[in-house]
Design a binder for these strands. Structure first.
Lengths: 320, 320
DNA sequence: CCACATTAAGTTAACGTTAACATCACAGCT
DNA sequence: AGCTGTGATGTTAACGTTAACTTAATGTGG
């Protein structure tokens, strides 16, 4: 028990006992077993994090923000990817809940019935990110994909573009992509413009190359298109490079706008106009929400679900 | 005990008992506790994976390969990033070992004394990736960064370039980057060419922009440079975009070669010549090595450390 | 019909830790 | 001296599972 107190730094131990225990720990190479500790203390020290894909700078940065906040509080991240599918999300979530996480951070507001039920039963804080769900499970740290797309249309409109197209995704479970398309349509109608120029590629992650193919198709079907919004910087980048290849000047022949402020969009020539949200901060806030909800729960205080809005910015650059 | 047998599918249970137990599990929403299970059975079901950065397509793909192989075998990944520092690696490794992983997958062959000692004491299979260490800890699934850089120099030489520079990193702990620089020098000397055109940027991850600044500096200091090799596609991409911005034709004014076959290098215009290794496969092999070593260990068979070489390819594209 | 194998299910004692409570030594006070 | 409070350490019983063993029930061959 004294060793436990020394290791966890909880409770009082005489300084010289601390020294003695520390020395023996060092000598023996003793490594405390957090799984056993969690079993006894009924909190595992894990926070489960589910992202659509780990191979995506935005989600990776979010994961970093989460990790940093958790580490500071002695917690560990349990990371899983759902491949942009809510069915896979349910499977992965099921696996993760076997580790008795102290909280769960999800991406998006669209989940299977099964996932919602499991989370209900688990009785732990949940944070949904990247979205503003109509029926939040618990806490939310996100932003409106509709509003952000509308803001981008406003930007294009302001720059004088009037024949604007959208190249997005077509997966039923990609509600974030669908929301961006919805924001696109609503904003165009607000400006009394035609919102029919839409091409839907497959389910995310959409390969970069397809952005190139899609803009060619767009300009073939609607040759007077003067600006195209993309669901992601990756496709926007693919499109712009294809324009370069074909000698179509950007933005003179067609303006291009992306989403997500990826490295490639920020650094290419010309630099791609895009939207930026601080994914690292979103992760950090989400983790902090889990932590504070967790301590409140431990103190027997009832926790009010909270909705935290992450600000977004339109980064007007050279392609518009 | 019967429930345990049903859940783990180990040992024989009468079919109708299985049905009954399954029904009750469903009814109760029972979720088995893998931490407790691991405590009892003395294997946690975790494999610890340490990568320099999660926000890097190559490492993310490796992690995917690992996850896929582990999932197939009922194991879970415990992912941590070291920020390209072996000191941080030691810290993170220490934290992870508290979860009693059944194996560890590391990046690179350069580790602190502390890390090596901890791994020794842990007595679990270890796989080093991304390198061919002189003194492997245990298993290796990697490739020679020296050889790959030499192959790239050979490619440039074959294309007729004779004034070749290298833009790399300068961190002491980035031995993979240092190896690539070494391969560069050795190959140039083999061809009786000058190997002094080297610019070392800071510690990885090197921002994309610095690639641009570095190539400007390179051509200022050594104006007759006709080709530049980069330690990574990211910096190569930054350099190429800067050339575009300045109206320097690539590869006519200067040829550019990267490393890693990133999305941005593959899809930009002109497409960047680079090297490619299959990170997903490297991850998969590493995980499979952990698994087979683990089962051998459980059967009391002594495990011979194995070295698996991952093939690399030079992708000759438009920038050379 | 019995000895013996096989299959199914149950019992016990760990695994390594911590919550909760108990004890002990000693200082400070009346 | 006796009482009280406090700080330091010790004891016990859990946490949820599984390894290893035991028991019970059911066949099977001579």
């Amino acid at each position: 028990m004294t060793v436990s107190r020394v290791v966890t730094k909880k409770g009082r131990v005489a300084p010289k006992t601390v020294a003695k225990v520390s020395r023996v720990i060092e000598e023996l190479g003793y490594v405390p077993d957090l799984n056993a500790g969690g079993l006894s203390s009924r909190n595992s020290g894990f926070v489960a994090v589910l992202v659509p894909s780990i191979d995506n700078s935005n989600f990776a940065q979010q994961a970093r923000g989460i990790t940093d906040a958790l580490t500071k509080n002695g917690l560990q991240i349990l990371l899983g990817s759902t491949d942009f599918s809510i069915e896979r999300e349910e499977t992965v979530l099921g696996t993760m809940l076997r580790r008795r996480p102290d909280g769960v951070i999800l991406t998006g507001g669209n989940h299977t019935e099964g996932s919602r039920r499991m989370l209900e039963n688990a009785g732990i804080p949940v944070v949904e990110t990247w979205d503003l769900p109509r029926q939040p499970i618990d806490h939310v740290v996100g932003f409106s994909n509709i509003a952000i797309a509308q803001a981008m249309v406003d930007h294009l409109h302001e720059r004088g573009y009037r024949h604007i197209g959208f190249i997005g995704s077509s997966s039923a479970s990609d509600t974030r992509g669908a929301d961006r398309e919805r924001g696109f349509s609503e904003a165009l109608r607000k400006h009394a413009l035609d919102d029919s120029r839409v091409i839907r590629l497959g389910a995310p992650p959409i390969p970069v190359e397809q952005g190139g193919e899609a803009i060619v198709e767009m300009l073939r079907r609607w040759p007077d298109t003067d600006a195209v919004m993309f669901v992601s910087d990756r496709t926007a980048f693919g499109a712009m490079q294809e324009c370069l290849r074909r000698g179509w000047p950007v933005p003179e022949r067609v303006a291009i706008a992306g989403f997500g402020n990826f490295d490639m969009a920020r650094n290419c020539h010309p630099r791609i106009t895009t939207t930026s949200i601080d994914c690292y901060e979103m992760g950090r806030f989400a983790a902090e929400r889990i932590i504070s909800a967790g301590t409140q729960l431990a103190d027997g205080v009832s926790v009010e679900p909270e909705i935290i809005m992450i600000p977004y910015r339109i980064l007007a650059r050279q392609t518009t």
